[in-house]
Each structure stands twice: as C-alpha cells, then as structure tokens.
Design a protein around this nucleic acid. Sequence first.
RNA 1: GGCGGGGUGGGUGAGUGGCUAAUACCACCGGGCUGUAAACUCGGCGCCCUAACGGGCUACGCAGGUUCGAAUCCUGCCCCCGCCA
Length: 410
Amino acid sequence: MTDARIPTAAELRWITTRAVAEIIPQREVLAALRSGRSLRLKMGFDPSAPDLTLGHAVGLRKLRQLQELGHTVVIIVGDGTAQIGDPSGQSKTRPMLTAEEVKANAETYLRQFFKIVERERTEVRWQSEWFGAFTLAEVVRLAAKFTVAQMLEREDFAQRFAAQKPIGVHEFLYPLLQGYDSVAVRADIEFGGTDQTFNLLVGRELQGHFDQKPQAVFTVPLLVGTDGKVKMSKSLGNYIAVEDPPPEMYGKVMSIPDTLVGDYFELLTDVADGEVAEIRRSMAERTDPMEQKMRLAREIVAQFHRRAEAEGAEAEFVRTFRRRELPEDAQEVPVRFQNESATVDFTELLVSAGVVKSRSQVRRLAAQGAIEVDGIRTTELQPALRRGSVIRVGKHRFLRIVDADLSTDA
RNA sequence: GGCGGGGUGGGUGAGUGGCUAAUACCACCGGGCUGUAAACUCGGCGCCCUAACGGGCUACGCAGGUUCGAAUCCUGCCCCCGCCA
C-alpha cells in the first residue's frame, strides 16, 4: 500500500472547496487527506448511457486531483444495477438493459473516462464480481437493512409516490446494491453529483452494518446544461459530450447563456478563484461577455483535445459565425460530373450526407431559404453545382462538392 | 380477486364518428436580428412523389370488428393509477 503525498494547505483548500457541493463528514475527510494514507476513492457508473458529458467531468476532475496526490480511484462498472436503471432524478422508471448492451456501453464509457482520470492509479471493478455469487438469502438480508420509510426519504421516490406514479420494487434495490459496492471494495470516500447523495449515504450506512469504517461522501455540484435550465443530461439533449469534436464543443460552449459562464469556469477549469470571481463580475456588468465566453470555450476544448485544436475551433467559430464565412473543413462529398454539370439528386445528396434527416425536410428548408450554394441563397431543389461548390444548410452545416473521379484529397 | 379511472406525435396534454397528419404548450429545426449556436421575433416540425398546385402511404397501447368513413363506437388482450379485499 503506497502512501499518498500530504497536500499543502492551499492544495487542500483547493481540493475540498473548489467545485465541491458537500463533504460528509468534512473533518474526517480533511484528516484523512492530511494523514498521508492512500485512500480508496469510489465512483460508480451505470453503463446505461455510455456518453460522458461535461456534467460527469466535474466529478472526474475531482478524482483526478486526488489521484495526483497518490490516492486510488476505484471505478465500479454497474453491470448489475444497469439492468435495473438508476431511478435518481428520474420521473419514471428506466428501461432495463441486456448484458451485451451493458458490456458495450462500459467499454466506450471507460475509454472516455480515462480522458480525465489516470489509468494507472485506477482499479476497474465489475459489480458482477460480487453479485454474481449472491444468493437470494443474501439479497433479502441486504434488503432487510432498510425500511420503506427510509427509501421514501429520497426525494424522487417521495415525489413519484405523491404523484401516484409507479415505483417498481426493484428500484428500491438500486441504492442497496450501489451501497453494497462500497462494502465490496472497502471504499474510503465515494464521489457523485448532489443527486447521488442518498445513494452514497446508503453505502455509508451499509458499511457500518458490515463492520467497516463508513465511507465519507463527497458530492460535486450539478452542471446546468446548455439550455441554462436543468442538469446537463444526454436524454434532455442539453449536453456537451466529452467526445464532441473541437468545433462542436466550442460552439456548444458559446451557446450557453451568459449567466452560466461563471459556473462553467468554476466547475470545469482551473482558473483561480479570484479570477473566476472577476469573470462573474464582468459577466454581470456585461463588460466583455464575448471575450470571457471565448476564453471559457478555449479552456474547455483544450482540456479534452489539444490546445491547437481549441485554437483552430475558435478561429473557425469566428470565421463561420462572426464573419459569416465558410469553415475550413466542410465535409467533402464526392459527386460525379459530366462535363461541367453534376449528376446527382441534390435532395438525396443532402440526406445521404447526413446533413438533413429526410427528403421532405430538404424541401421545407429550401422553401424557407435555409440553403445556400456558393454564398447564394437558393430555393431550387436542383441547383447548379460546380466542382468545389460549397453548400450551406441552415447556420452551421456545410458541404463541399468534390469530383468523384479525381482523387479524394485534391 | 372486486369496483372505478386511464393509455394520443420526442415530452406534457386537447380532441369523443367525417371539418384531424390530429388544438395548445415544451423540445427541436429554419428565417430575421445579435458579441454568441443566447435572448427576442417570425415560420416550420410523420414518411414518400412533385418546380409548384396537388397526390400517396403510415399513425392515436395491441389485435380484431361495426361503418361509405374510426383516435373517436364494439369485442378481446396488454399496461398504468386509485379504492376495497
């Protein structure tokens, strides 16, 4: 068992206050971090939705900071609970997944996970390691440790119960199983968003029942999505994915409401607290909001991609949106030419390039004047195309026509 | 097990035989405007054919039926909610 580095007072403050919602019990955690003992930091994930968003990144960044002191991350692949579906924050029951879906999701999840967390100091554990051998008697014994009233303390259960919406009995099992994971891996601290507080506390309590030292609970604030209203989540479509390509990630950050800029700086960057406070002030006064937002977008993109790509994304954003010019890397579409005229169905071209969903939609867009060819708006459904023509659909979808008979990278 | 209420487009939720591809709101997409892919505003928003007018197909839990015509009526099934047992 390796020892961890003892953080300086400044580091300790940074780790335990910046982008932190609640630490329970705080004293204990501070003492543990100062002890130099290497801690086991647990974080579970439910491989039902494999895409990591910047919302997840808030907690993962925290894990990373602690890893750098020498603590160990224990990531739990919820291959048992995924088949139940975490009811946290859900207004209805989630669908269950098959074992194969879970496995495939877990792989993509881990790949993204290691973009933020160091692989070497991470232990990946599958729930099936311990639940695979669980007997019915053990499940019942586990369930007996909690009462229905305790479960109904949880807000979403209480709300659904009050609203007369269904709660499956199996959903009560979710916090119990997640809590038992903490017993199985002997976690010292478990991490999650504030919406996980209940589940994390169940783990703390269960460890006590199994004669272990109860884990501490460390929650981070929930990141509000690009709509500026609710928690970032894939299912609500207000998310920025960790794997979004640079231009997209950059653009999405630019689209957040101004009021969120301060929070994003706080939760997703290492910009010093004092500076963040200043940014909040300047956003409130609207001195140069555009400048701040661009800096934020650059900082975030650079974190998940290379710095040069962040700069490229910015240059492209400025070209495309501010100056209304064309992007550098429009998707190229090979088209066959006879003499000078293209021999394709234009509508089909847009659909098969994935730029528009259906042919009907292409017609509607054309009628609305959303289509430009070489900078000239056209409502025709069969506009003249040249080699190198640039087609623009709406504000930010571009295609460049290339001759299919010439080499593709001409 | 009994009684009652309910299942409509991505979501909430109108509609109770033709005027309904289906009101409204949200989400989403587009035009305008803007420092922004924000806000605001105007428009669109099942699929296919058509330059357009227009036409075809599919759709209101599932399966049948009544009718010239059904989201709307009938029968069976599935699911959800409540009360009682």
